[in-house]
Simulated assay, not measured.
Amino acid sequence: MHNVLPAHQTKHLSQLQYPFRTCCFHLAQRDNGQTNGTALWLGAQCLSLYLADICARKSATAAKQRPRVIELGSGVGLSALALSSLGWDVLATDLPDVISAVLSGNIARNISNLPLTSGAIQVCVLDWTIPPDKWTWDNDLHIAASSEDRIELSSLSSRCEERLRPPFDMIISADTMYNPALVDPFLRTLHNLSVLSSSGAKRAPPVYLCIERRDPTLIQQALASAKDTWNFAVERIFRKKVVKAMDKGGLTWTPEDWDGVEIWKLTLRNTA
């Protein structure tokens, strides 16, 4: 991986040529101030390389069924494309404005250039503010959407033969803990997905979060809530491991280039 700049140095570019392992993703982004989700962020850059490192130790093709991952707040789609290229089936979720602005187009633009061993990628709406008892896994366009969004989505055609659904083998999200009002809905969503993916004897899947510690108080309160309110075991990935993964991926930034970026692993504790 060469000439990959930190996301904060490329916000002014509407198109990015983004090398990742043996692929090169063509990513459109928008920095129009309307939503944070339409531009590339540091978290997705760091998380995709860390996941590539840990997934390389596991054989996706050896399993009878491809491993499945769901991403919350997929944004421009870098992490989704990265995991698909590694052999995972990916359910990339976000809000309708992000999906229509960048996510769907980026997935469609790159899907034909992925390796033959790549997994499927599906895109759908998952609004964290919708209570889990209102979710549906039988709709090709959304898992959880507001009434207004459903009306807008109803004009679109179905895109998936069969929706990827729980159980998921991994849950990921990057740069999604920045708004205090969304922390509890976000953690509730992670909790419900973990419960749905750990029925019977199946263990809860790992949840990997990449955060940029812009507001230390918010982050500390969110991690404490994940542990004390939502029953997650919370563990920070050692920075040395993240640095090693980035080096393997050919990304040689200075420490200042990604200062404040952290990766955390959450695992729902056994409630039996």
Score class of each variant (00 low, 15 high):
C46W: 08
V90T: 06
C55A: 14
K265M: 12
T176C: 15
C210N: 02
S154Q: 11
K64C: 09
Y178V: 04
F168G: 03
R236G: 13
P205H: 05
L196R: 10
P6L: 03
L223D: 08
P67Y: 07
G119E: 05
E256C: 11
L16E: 10
S85P: 14
S157D: 11
C23F: 05
P205R: 06
E262L: 11
S84H: 09
A92D: 02
P131I: 08
L83M: 14
W258C: 12
L83Q: 08
L91A: 08
V242R: 00
V123Y: 01
T22E: 14
S118E: 04
W264F: 10
G200E: 07
W253S: 05
V183M: 04
S147V: 14
K265S: 09
S197M: 03
Q15W: 05
R214A: 06
T136S: 13
A108C: 12
W128E: 00
A92F: 03
L209D: 01
W253A: 06
L27V: 10
R269L: 15
A201Y: 06
D97H: 15
H12V: 04
R188I: 00
L209V: 02
T267D: 07
L153G: 01
R163Y: 02
E152F: 12
G37V: 09
N270D: 15
A44C: 12
I172Q: 08
D97C: 14
T267I: 13
I121A: 01
V207T: 06
I130M: 01
K134C: 12
G249W: 01
Q220V: 10
K58H: 13
I70R: 00
R214L: 08
R150K: 15
A63C: 10
D31Y: 11
D184K: 15
P206G: 04
L51E: 10
L40E: 03
I172D: 03
A56G: 15
A108Q: 15
W88V: 07
S118F: 07
P166F: 05
K265C: 14
M246V: 03
S198M: 06
T10N: 02
H12I: 08
W230S: 00
M246C: 11
S100Q: 14
T35D: 11
L218A: 09
M170K: 01
A181F: 11
T267Q: 12
E162M: 12
L193W: 03
L141Y: 05
G87D: 07
L251T: 09
P132Y: 09
N179D: 15
A63Q: 13
G200Y: 10
S14C: 08
C210G: 05
A56W: 01
P180H: 05
N110H: 11
T254F: 09
S14Q: 10
R269N: 13
L27D: 09
M177C: 15
V123Q: 02
I151Y: 06
R30T: 12
L5K: 13
V242A: 00
M1V: 11
R239Q: 15
G87I: 00
S158C: 07
A204D: 09
T252D: 10
L86V: 05
I263T: 04
V102E: 01
F232T: 04
L268H: 03
A101H: 07
L193G: 07
A101G: 03
Q45A: 07
D169R: 06
A245F: 03
D247E: 12
I172A: 10
D31I: 01
